[in-house]
């Protein structure tokens, strides 16, 4: 979308675009790359002045400490459990709700839909103190099930919004045809609608998984001991391993690895879902 006045302007635009965008990309990657470099240094090299960028020799001391700590034994499995279960539950509930909102109109359906979307505006933060009280009353502190329920409720409104916009694009005639061919409504939903909505469901799953994997505050408040997740574990590392930055950074790399891999693999669906969600407002 550029209106070229001359070859010179075009060349200037091309170069300046790459230089500026390249600068921002560098800004985005620099801390990650430096963290990766630090994670392969040993303790003395981390604490040298002036600091070096590249490790003089690649050592895995930091990773060994992390692998022998609670991080790998408890926190990573906990996070995998919490994120997997809550993402699956959210996608199932949100597709039922999204399907209903696009296929049925009843008195108050629009109001109900808006009310659910309005819940997105309640930040998770302001519910933390009451949730902590509720959890301690129910003796559900340190329970992975309870936090999965909290994550499900927290992610549901956004997931309904995203998944709904995918259902909207599926023509209702397809369903009617299936019903005429003798499918039951549930069969039609499962065998005709769901496969078509699959990219949307995948995107919803991805957004939810990244969100819960990275969630910190609810996990900090509601979980302790061996029930902790990776992010809370990371926070604890900072007090238990004073300034052992090669250990901290090794933990950082392990924690970010799954979501980065997931993001690279599913980036197309990710951007599609983000744009669908971000632009409907």
């Amino acid at each position: 979308m550029h209106f070229v006045n001359s070859k010179l302007t075009k060349r200037f635009d091309l170069i300046s675009t790459h230089v500026i965008l390249g600068g921002f990309a560098l800004f985005a990657l620099f801390p990650i790359v430096y963290t990766l470099m630090t994670s392969f240094k040993n303790e003395t090299e981390v604490l040298t002045r002036p600091p070096t960028f590249f490790p003089s020799t690649l050592v895995t001391e930091g990773y060994e400490v992390v692998f022998n700590s609670e991080m790998v034994r408890y926190y990573i499995p906990n996070s995998i459990f919490n994120s997997m279960v809550s993402s699956v539950v959210v996608v199932v509930l949100a597709s039922l709700a999204g399907y209903t909102f696009t296929r049925y109109k009843f008195r108050g359906s629009r109001a109900l839909e808006l009310a659910i979307l309005g819940l997105m505006m309640i930040p998770g933060l302001t519910n933390l103190i009451p949730l902590y009280r509720i959890a301690s009353e129910l003796r559900a502190l340190n329970s992975n099930i309870f936090i999965v329920a909290v994550y499900t409720a927290g992610g549901l409104p956004f997931a309904i919004w995203i998944i709904r916009s995918f259902f909207e694009t599926i023509p209702i005639e397809l369903e009617e045809a299936a019903l005429i061919d003798g499918c039951t409504p549930i069969q039609a939903l499962r065998m005709v609608i769901m496969p078509l909505a699959a990219p949307g469901l995948l995107a919803g799953f991805l957004l939810m998984f990244v969100d819960t994997w990275n969630e910190f505050l609810a996990a900090l408040v509601l979980l302790s001991g061996n029930a902790r997740t990776v992010t809370v574990g990371m926070y604890d590392f900072q007090s238990s391993f004073e300034i052992a930055y090669h250990v901290w950074t090794a933990a950082c790399i392990l924690i970010m690895l799954p979501v980065i891999v997931l993001f690279i693999g599913l980036r197309k669906q990710f951007f599609e879902a983000m744009l669908a969600g971000a632009l409907k407002g």
């Binding site: 990650i32 963290t35 994997w213 990275n214 969630e215 950082c252 980065i260």
Partner: peptide
């Protein structure tokens, strides 16, 4: 990339 990284991890870096 930074957007998919947890705030605690980003903060540590």
């Amino acid at each position: 990339f930074p957007w998919v990284i947890s705030d605690v991890v980003a903060g540590t870096m």
